[in-house]
């Protein structure tokens, strides 16, 4: 129902609380993986290692992790709201975005979880620089594709 344009601040209060609670859970997930298996929780690295075969050695850990990510929201759906990604139905945009995210995260060796959450929390200079650049690029992407070209 609510498009990006008509989203008002009336829902702000519960949204940021849910954001904080969800964020703490994400941090807890990273904590479990780090202190349990000694691994950095980076979604793009976990997926990418399966896709290009570089993570063949611990493939089952990766598959099981992704199964958890995939299944858990389904378990929660009856309790927490109705899920809606509100993602665009424009397939050209989706494919372009997917390619950029896939190439970019693997070339940079990390995404929002690996560089962002796990990198910043250990004061990794690379993580901080990566985060600055992908947020800047994301912001420019909005300016270009939404406000100038009007395609998203």
């Amino acid at each position: 129902m609510t498009g990006p344009k008509d989203k008002k601040e009336t829902h702000m209060q519960p949204e940021w609380i849910m954001g904080l609670i969800g964020g703490l859970l994400i941090g807890l997930a990273g904590t479990v993986l780090l202190l349990g298996n000694g691994k950095i929780m980076g979604a793009s690295g976990i997926i990418g290692g399966l896709v290009d075969g570089s993570g063949f050695g611990d493939r089952w850990e990766r598959i099981v992790f992704l199964a958890g990510v995939f299944l858990m929201p389904m378990v929660l759906i009856p309790f927490v709201g109705t899920p809606d990604t509100k993602v665009t139905g424009n397939y050209a945009v989706l494919i372009a975005a997917g390619l950029l995210v896939g190439i970019g995260t693997r070339v940079a060796n990390g995404c929002t979880s690996g560089h962002g959450v796990c990198g910043i929390s250990r004061f990794s200079f690379r993580g901080i620089i990566a985060t600055v650049f992908y947020i800047l690029a994301g912001g420019l992407s909005m300016v270009l594709f939404r406000h100038i070209l009007g395609i998203i």
Partner: peptide, 11 residues
């Protein structure tokens, strides 16, 4: 890589 990722993330 981060710039490419960010562009797709925004899209």
């Amino acid at each position: 890589g981060s710039v490419l990722f960010g562009a797709g993330w925004g899209l």
